[in-house]
Nucleic acid binder design. Structure first.
Lengths: 187, 187
DNA sequence: ACCTGAACACCGTTCAAGT
DNA sequence: ACCTGAACACCGTTCAAGT
């Protein structure tokens, strides 16, 4: 009864569908992303949906794009940190990605990607971007190319693994990630 | 390889359905777990499925139980390696988990767990077991408790992160994991 | 005990027709 | 430009009837 079914707008735009989808995704997870759920909350029929989107994959793509935009912003932010000295830079990257809201969004997208292949490329891109940033920091710290690559790869994967593990065991612990940095940059 | 797809038995048992489900899960992921896919490969109609299982959730539960048994067996195997010297032991753990068939099963179960909470505890148990084994190896190598714990945590998460990343980018590379071992045990 | 075949509900999808 | 309403395909589910 608390739905906005009664607040039926005369006309809907793509952004209305995306917004409703985002709300569903965040509150009930990817499994709730059904056309019928959307038409219920928006107060229209399913035919309406197909005026705005080719199919449900298109809706999910658009939703994913929204998430990707946030991720790109994250990647940009990380790249912007390159003015910092390498050690502080790695610390700043860790602080940034472990910020609770970012962390939650990251976990949600990665979790969603397991049932939606369209998201895989976006995630791969962010991972590549992060790896590049970390690799560069390792180089700046004076490690030889191959050593730097291995250290960067391990640090990145440790972060991703930690994210997946923490997904069901509570909030992130920035301290743990900082220890990973220390270990992966030790001589 | 027992390809019984075309060999239509006169009668099927629960184990036949589970086996076919496991094959589908590992080769095509949880999304392929459809009754119609199973009846196609087993050469029966959907009504047959409902003689053996109450619904598709029951099939998935039974499959999950099978997966959990495998996870437990894996944990036991890792615990059994403790007789080896620490360095060889870590190498043996890496070789064991990166064995292609185990790796594929592991990736499938972890991927599936994102949409099936019943699997989370089994995975957490294996992770705990792996962490304990790796931690013990670090202690045996002479690292102090807290340092050993951090090194073990990072190595474990790097492996998990690598598994998730490799899930969509091809087969595992044991060499990469061995380099992670070298890095996380470096002084 | 195990299976078929027909039926039904649900959801994604299409499209001609309405405003 | 945006939406309705009816149709259809696909998949999970039920069940009476067959061996």
């Amino acid at each position: 009864m608390t739905e906005q079914t009664l607040v039926k707008r005369a006309r809907l735009g793509v952004s209305d569908w995306i917004a409703a989808s985002m709300r569903l995704l965040v509150t009930e997870g990817p499994a709730a992303l059904k056309i019928s759920r959307l038409t219920d909350t928006l107060g229209v029929t399913k035919g309406s949906f197909y005026w705005h989107f080719a199919d449900i994959a298109a809706l999910k793509s658009a939703l994913a794009a929204q998430c990707e935009a946030q991720q790109r912003a994250a990647a940009d932010h990380v790249r912007g940190l390159r003015i910092l000295p390498a050690t502080e830079r790695l610390g700043a990257i860790v602080d940034y990605v472990s910020e609770p809201r970012r962390w939650a969004a990251e976990a949600a997208v990665r979790s969603w990607s397991h049932t939606d292949n369209s998201l895989c490329s976006a995630i791969a891109e962010l991972d590549r971007s992060l790896h590049e940033a970390i690799y560069q920091a390792m180089l700046d710290l004076g490690f030889a190319e191959e050593d730097a690559r291995t250290r960067a790869t391990m640090l990145l994967y440790a972060g991703i693994g930690y994210l997946h593990a923490a997904e069901q065991s509570g909030p992130p612990n920035a301290d743990t990630l900082h220890r990973f940095v220390a270990l992966s940059t030790a001589r």
